[in-house]
Every structure is written in C-alpha cells, then in structure tokens.
Amino acid sequence: MAEKDARPHTVLVTGATDGIGLLLARAYAKRSHHVLATGRRGIANDEEFFKFPNITYVTADQSDPRHAASTILAIMQDMGWEKLDLAILNGATAWTGPPYDEPINTIGDQLKVNLTSPIHLILALTPMLHAAQGRLVMIGSTSINKGHGQFATYVATKAALNGLSRSLREEWRGKANVMIIHPGPTRTRMHAKAGLNLRFVRLFFMSPKKVARAIQVAIRRGNEGRKIITRFGCFMARFSWAGKGQL
C-alpha cells in the first residue's frame, strides 16, 4: 500500500481464528480497514470474538478448496467489494511425525488447505486484486530452507507457495504485488494442533505479537520475500522434534 492508510482498504485474512492470522486481522481492523476474516471454525458472534465491528467473519473450510473460494468471493460481492487491496493467505495446517507413518488423509489435507486452497482463492480474487493494484501476501515458513524431517509434507506445501509466489510475482509485475513472508518458529498453537508437544523449547520461539507486527512492516515495504526469525529460536527448534515430544 503505497499511500499508507489513505482510505479504508479492503483486507482478506485467511486462517484468522487463531495465531498470527487473528492478530493480523485485528491489527488491520484497528487501523480502520475493512477486514474479511475466514477460518474453519464457526463463530457465533463476530464482534464479540474479534472485538472490532469492522471485521466480518465467514466460515470457509480450506479442506474443501472450491467451496471455500466461492464462499469468500460470494461474501465479498455481498459486501459490495469491487477491489481487494490486500489478501493475506495465512491459513495452514500441519502434521508432525516420521514421513513414512504419515496417514493418507493428512497428506491430502495439508496439500488442500495449504496449497490447493490458496490457488483456488488467488484465481477467484485475481480480478479484484488487479483492479486495486493490490497486494497478495502468502505466509510461508523458514523451515523450507533446511527442511524438517518431522514436517515433510507441511514444508513441501510451504516451499510450493514460495515457488508460486516467485513465479507469480514476475507474471503479475505491474498488475499486483505478490510476496511471501516466512515467519520462523512462533509460539502459536499450530505445533500443538499438529500433534507436537514442544515442552520447554516453546519458550525460545518468537512471540506471535512481534511476528504479526513484523509481517505488517514487511507488507508495507512490499519486497519479494522476507524472513522473520530470531537466530536462537531457530536453533532451539531443532530440538523440538526429540520424538518423545509427540502428544
């Protein structure tokens, strides 16, 4: 966004019920932008949950990519959005364990939620993003640099997003800005949801608040790729998979 906060922008945040997504949705709402938050969960009262009147929530389960994309597009049309200034594709799911034990549905689920669904969504949102000369932000992971033996499929999907953003950025040059931000190990509930008990290692991970703030700065700058890390946190993350940590 070149002219910072010049008008209320339209912002989409996927995976906004928890972790970094929730913080980002609230942060953009606080700056009085119109925010559409999506997630898997059903939420009875948007305003009570998000604490901001300018956040609209819609349940869009990304494990059904086609349906999720059409739901989000429909609600945008209902709200009368013609342009989309900022889309943050943050929603993701993970599974942890040795790659040869990974159940087939979790492989499929991760590919759908983390990769197929963003692709469906980008396809649906292309005209609106181009109309606004908007910004498309994918959330990756620093784990793609060295790989991680216990998160193989998750890392594969994040690396795929990285590749997608790299090529799409070039394709969309002059039409919209495509970027990917790679947060390092963050103290969110993702690891627990993925079935990993981090124990004390969690203490060394970055606080989600700081990560969300750094993501906003990175989005404002609009450079191609940005890593958000603390060296020590990344170092400690290596000990998180000690095996016994499995829930």
Binding site: P98, P99, Y100, L115, I119, I144, K146, G147, H148, G149, Q150, F151, A152, T153, V155, A156, T157, K158, A159, A160, L161, N162, G163, L164, R166, S167, L168, E171
Partner: peptide, 21 residues
C-alpha cells in the same frame, strides 16, 4: 507458476525426508 510450485514442493519434501529415510 503452479508447475514450478509443485516441483519446488517436491524438492523440499525430498530434502525433509532425507534423514528419516
């Protein structure tokens, strides 16, 4: 771009499974 994405994903998967395999 999506072809490139899948091939990047595959390369990352291979890097991840190197040790466990």
């Amino acid at each position: 771009s999506v072809y490139a994405a899948t091939k990047d994903g595959l390369a990352a998967y291979a890097r991840c499974v190197d040790k466990p395999f």
